[in-house]
Design a protein around this nucleic acid. Structure first.
Length: 483
RNA sequence: GGCGAAGUGGCCGAGUGGCUAGGCAGAGGUCUGCAAAACCUCGUACAGCGGUUCGAAUCCGCUCUUCGCCUCCA
């Protein structure tokens, strides 16, 4: 088996992964700003990093996973303009910012839970770490990397020559060209960014600081919380590609200027979601929020769909693409069900080569599409074996189950539990439904035995109209509910 | 304009200097009372133009196109 390689955005290449402390991985991922329901973009990001965590744990690492919740509304602009997003949402919903943050935080976890995304070990909030952020800002001022101006504090980009190294945006001319509102700003340099903002009249979420009443800048929370819980140098920091600049470059500047140590050893960046080939954006009206998608698709189908492409590739959502995934996903579940019900025979199926290839795929920068393709090749081999009269030996059956549970289940998280898989236990009716179905199937079997196909087909058709599908197999008739 | 990613068969989507993933859709077949499921067979794709090479879709150059970031965004 190969060893784990991860693509590091800092070096722009795949590197063998070696954590700072043997056997332990410290990992931080930028969490959501909670002012609306989670959408497909959040899903791609957190499902991708969920697999990163799951796989490293399966490799035996103890992973400490921190993912923040941004519950301070940041402005739409780095200058002294724009509006607090959470406060704006609060006004629209006629409530206050903290309630908005709490409400959408719960909504976020609800959606992630349904997709099988494991909760982070620590989920710190920005509002819960104001003192830590103030301390970090004070240290930056002391070391000459930041300055106060009119109750605002800015990071002095000129004091940190490596600024922009992650995004490749080192050209100061280009940086300054972006500072469009320089004249109206308190900044010394247009590319300086805010660490602390003075609260304007009417601003609700604000705190006392050495510089007066205000609130922290967006970038500073991640540096402060990551260092608080994971130390001054962390193994992995993940986030969306669109945050490379300015967010992640700012994080590096804040952390490294304050500690003089490397902040992050491996940067991982997740690519974006497009819808029918174009960016998913509010202004385009093509936002796919998860709660809407879950009405039509099983949350695990969304997860499966996401993992069928690589995390560093853009994912294009379209109706035909997701439906194709749904059909494929059902094929996988069907094979698992079949395996669970299979009676032991004498045939053999060697799982080892599939296991090795799946491990190699995941070790190669978490290549989930290849891992899934190997699982499908396995499913084909499995179905073929089960089709044959000799079936599979008890040992092969348990090997196959162990393989599927380890990779499709544990590592990728796309397998339902055995209970959910078992035909009938759709979560509703439960036992009563099972018993009623047993009676119906027995009646149908008797009709078939008498060659009364009119009756047997009628039972099948009527059940199908209620979304219950029957299948006659060698072992007997099975049934399952369709979504 | 600057920075970055990418163009693969009907669709989605991996990969790679020669052995040509996988899923969906489609065609034919096996099985079945019929379905469904499953299995077998089939498509010989890599934007275009040059170049390197015994050999390139994979390396190099140019052209065209798409996408993202440069303002909050996963």
């Amino acid at each position: 088996m190969s060893s784990l390689q991860i693509y590091n955005s800092l070096s722009r290449s795949k590197e063998p992964f070696v954590p700072l402390v043997e056997g332990v991985v410290s990992m931080y991922v930028c969490g959501p700003t909670v002012y609306g329901h989670a959408h497909l973009g959040h899903a791609k990001s957190y499902v991708s990093f969920d697999v990163v965590v799951r796989w490293m744990r399966q490799l035996g690492y103890k992973v400490k996973y921190v993912q923040n919740i941004t519950d301070v509304g940041h402005l739409t602009d780095d200058a002294d303009e724009g509006e607090d997003k959470i406060q704006k949402q609060a006004r629209q919903e006629k409530t206050d910012p903290m309630e908005i943050a709490q409400f959408y935080t719960r909504s976020f976890y609800e959606d992630m839970d349904r997709m099988g995304v494991l909760r982070p070990n620590i989920a710190p909030t920005a509002t819960g770490h104001i003192p830590e952020q103030i301390a970090l800002i004070s240290r930056l001022i002391e070391k000459g990397h930041a300055y106060e101006s009119n109750g605002n504090v800015y990071f002095s980009v000129n004091s940190f020559p490596q600024y922009g190294r992650l995004s490749g945006r080192t050209d100061q001319e280009a940086l300054q060209a972006g500072g469009r509102v320089a004249e109206r700003s308190d900044k010394q340099n247009p590319s300086d960014f805010a660490l602390w903002k003075r609260a304007q009249p009417g601003h609700i979420m604000k705190w006392m600081s050495p510089w007066g009443e205000g609130y922290p800048g967006w970038h500073v929370e991640c540096s402060a919380m990551a260092m608080k819980y994971l130390g001054e140098t962390i193994d992995i920091h993940g986030g969306g590609m669109e945050n490379k600049f300015p967010h992640h470059d700012c994080e590096i500047a804040q952390a490294e200027a304050s500690t003089d140590k490397q902040f992050v050893r491996v940067w991982m960046h997740n690519n974006m979601v497009t819808v029918d080939g174009v960016k998913m954006g509010k202004s385009l009206g093509n936002f796919k929020n998860l709660k809407d998608l879950f009405v039509v698709f099983d949350p695990l189908v969304i997860r499966f769909f996401i993992l069928q492409s690589h995390y560093r590739s853009p994912l294009d959502f379209s109706d035909t693409a997701i439906r194709a995934s749904q059909t494929g996903f059902e094929k996988l579940l069907e094979a698992c069900r079949r395996l669970l019900e299979a009676a032991p025979g004498t045939g053999m199926l060697d799982v080892t080569p599939f296991r090795t290839r799946t491990e190699d795929a995941l070790n190669d920068d978490f290549n989930t599409p290849v891992a899934i393709s190997v699982i499908f090749e396995f499913v084909k081999a499995l179905n073929g074996a089960l089709d044959r009269t000799e079936g599979l030996s008890g040992e092969s059956i348990s090997d196959a189950l162990a393989y599927l549970e380890a990779f499709a289940g544990n590592a990728l998280g796309i397998l339902k539990s055995r209970d959910q898989l078992a035909a009938g236990s759709a979560g509703d009716g439960g036992q009563t439904l099972d018993e009623v179905m047993e009676v119906l199937l027995e009646l149908r079997t008797q009709a078939k035995a008498k060659k009364d196909f009119a009756t047997s087909d009628a039972i099948r058709d009527m059940l199908l109209s209620k979304n219950i599908e029957l299948k006659d197999t060698r072992e007997g008739t099975t049934w399952s509910k369709k979504k």
